[in-house]
Design a protein around this nucleic acid. Structure first.
Lengths: 185, 185
DNA sequence: GTCTATATACCGATAGAC
DNA sequence: GTCTATCGGTATATAGAC
């Protein structure tokens, strides 16, 4: 793998696990096995790395959504794929929360210029979920339902991180499955 | 107001607005009008200030819960008081998220020793909500319902912070009001 | 493309005068 | 109880050898 890609992958993981501000160039360099100095050949600032990390996450998310569309035949099944992320990624979420939600929360507090870029991650999921609800015949309220599903995932992620309670996550997913079944064709 | 209390009040606000790690001693000292050096007469470390901030938040929360109990006659009305925080504190939540959720999220990523202390804030709300559901005759699942209400507030807070959409908040509060009415005696 | 060495600034924390 | 001065550490970022 190219050095630049290794840097982005390491920064992605460290930003998620320890936060953007708390992660230093030395941390990323150490994870990749590079010296600090050589860093600026690949990225001219810490903001530039964050930008690359967000773009990489957008690409990975687009791929994941495409995969869900090919794997889950019905719109309701696709929405459930999203809902079940909190179980699929349970271990990471309990330790570090939602990668999208926690990044957005942190950048908002830092009044960081890249906050808008990070918001595109939420918007990507929002638009995809909205499409699924349109396909479910809920065009009039598709965006509102998409926002509700997003809020669900964020609420569960924050609580799972705070209390590390797997049974809670399973109950909330079951609750969402039941709620979603009322919209199923 | 005593200098110590001024420090705690300033640190409380700055930790909420800009995060714990991003807030420096110089920031707090500047807000209070003190020199950095004099700081250590009142608090021997930054952790000690965080501890005092958490204790102050616990005290304020207990007072708020007592007030809700005196103002709202029914358990369902009290739970709705909690649910409606996202509207009552809408402006702050859109700018900075939930003070409890965002602090817990940040301390988890920092692997900070005070994470357990911050968790007491969530536990305080959780126990109080559980009591209300017991009074509603839902003793068997009171804790699960309490956790659901907490997850609601955290989900709405993260989304409100990310999208700054007041209509979304109002819709979600209405949704919770309807859900809660099914448990009302 | 990778390295060492370094510049500059800020961090939490301390010492000591008043 | 408040101040100034300062320590040691680390941060982002740069310069220049190889």
């Amino acid at each position: 793998m190219a050095t630049r890609e290794q840097i982005v992958a390491a920064a992605d993981r460290l930003f998620y696990h320890h936060g953007y501000e708390h992660t230093s160039f030395a941390d990323i360099a150490g994870a990749v096995g590079l010296s600090r100095g050589n860093f600026y050949y690949h990225f001219k600032s810490k903001d530039a790395i964050l930008d690359a990390v967000i773009e990489a996450r957008l690409d990975n998310t687009r791929q994941m959504l495409e995969q869900w569309e090919s794997e889950a035949p019905t719109p309701a099944g696709r929405v459930m794929r999203y809902v079940e992320i909190v179980l699929t990624n349970r271990a990471d979420i309990q330790d570090y929360g939602c990668p999208v939600g926690t990044l957005t929360t942190e950048l908002a507090k830092l009044e960081h210029a890249m906050l808008g870029q990070a918001g595109r991650l939420f918007t990507l999921f929002r638009g995809w979920l909205r499409e699924q609800f349109v396909l479910l015949g809920q065009a009039a309220q598709a965006d509102e339902l998409a926002m509700h599903v997003l809020a669900f995932s964020q609420g569960v992620a924050v609580m799972a991180n705070a209390f590390r309670d797997e049974a809670f996550i399973r109950r909330e997913v079951d609750r969402m499955r039941e709620w979603l079944s009322t919209y199923e064709k």
